[in-house]
Design a protein around this nucleic acid. Structure first.
Lengths: 225, 225
DNA sequence: GTCTATAAATAGATAGAC
DNA sequence: GTCTATCTATTTATAGAC
């Protein structure tokens, strides 16, 4: 009996541990989103999780590791979303809907960006420190993070190239520039400014940022021009 | 004789003081641009200026005041640039050049944005802390900063409204959204990413960011479409 | 005003009991 | 693993001589 229960017991214990660490990374995620790595203190994390600071250090060896774990969780979440999106329509080809040319690749890029903005507005997007910091080094050294980042970049990159081939994304822009421009939406201060102004709903903010990102500030000449 | 020299002596002394403080704000400006407010330490500033830390505190009462002075200098520099730009062509009206419609207001907005990006690439654009920090409060409380910010916003705002009226800037976007989007170029991480990649010259980076900002990521349909 | 030396406060990390 | 209490390093800020 113990022979069959032992593994279950172990699994349960492991699950508890994982749940606890999940709770920690969730708090870190939120704090990282709210104030960033430098301004976030380990005391705050401990207070928000509801455990002693020393207990935190039993799970993670440093503040960097702590933040790293949260970033890994976030990037893997993004990877999961993108892979689901990719699986929805296997064929990455141009399509025709109601006489208007559309692109599955472009659609996916827009959906990803919207998803990012939603996460950001929900306070769940841990912002990378814009300036070089100790966190950067830790992230670079983290296999799971770099793996996730590479997978995400590959997926987005493929859609970018595809959308450029199909004539939807400006082919004069290097794909890497387009990629960075999309990544930058994750730390777009416009979102926060507009949110603080309280003049617009989250949906309106998202649509405005989507417009400035994909259509730009200038008017689009319609076919009637 | 002393009666005529005294004021000169005083003025000279004041000029020295101002020059010293100018040197300090320049260093702060650079460090603020490089690492941001949180990561910048007063020790670093003192070391870079070449004076003792205690001497710094004779000029400024706190780290916030120190950074504040640098930000005021920066915003006033921007204000000066915009006012010069405004004076160059008094009439903010639509124009016709070689059969193509152009807009003086749009031209000014683009010039301002280019100027911002150049400053940023030169490492002279002190980045506002994206998250709430003690610096924000100090800036809000600083009359000269708020005055400068308001003047800058008024100038840009007028050009935005004008360009929208003339049909060059997307009128579906609230002017404040356009304003924030332009302000956001000052802390655009894409610029830094592209600079780090060392694949493009500063001019190329600027042109790419100008394109993504004003034209967006999607292709523009030419009249031939 | 500038310096050296130091105070005071904060934050990352650890010791050791339970 | 969790806690309280503490250590250590860093950083903002100041005292006091010159």
């Amino acid at each position: 009996m113990t022979a069959t229960l032992e593994p279950l017991k172990k699994s349960f214990k492991a699950q508890m541990l994982e749940a606890r660490e999940q709770a920690i990374t969730a708090s870190v995620n939120r704090l990282l989103s709210e104030k960033g790595f430098d301004a976030m203190t380990v005391d705050e994390v401990a207070a928000e999780v509801g455990i002693a600071k020393a207990s935190l250090y039993k799970h993670f060896n440093s503040k960097e590791e702590l933040a790293c774990a949260a970033m890994v969780q976030a990037i893997q979440k993004a990877q999961g979303y993108l892979e689901d999106l990719n699986a929805q329509s296997a064929d990455n080809t141009e399509a025709e809907f109601e006489g208007a040319r559309t692109s599955v690749a472009l659609y996916k890029l827009k959906a990803s960006t919207r998803w990012t903005l939603q996460l950001k507005l929900a306070g769940q997007m841990p912002t990378l420190p814009s300036h070089n910091s100790s966190l950067r080094a830790s992230l670079m050294a983290s296999r799971p993070y770099m793996d996730g980042l590479m997978k995400v970049s590959d997926l987005l990159g493929a859609w970018i190239v595809q959308a450029q081939k199909e004539g939807f994304i400006n082919a004069a822009l290097p794909p890497i520039t387009v990629l960075y421009t999309l990544y930058a939406r994750a730390c777009d201060p416009v979102v926060e400014f507009l949110k603080m102004s309280e003049l617009h709903s989250n949906e309106e903010i998202i649509e405005m940022v989507m417009t400035t990102c994909f259509d730009g500030l200038m008017v689009r000449k319609t076919k009637a021009s």
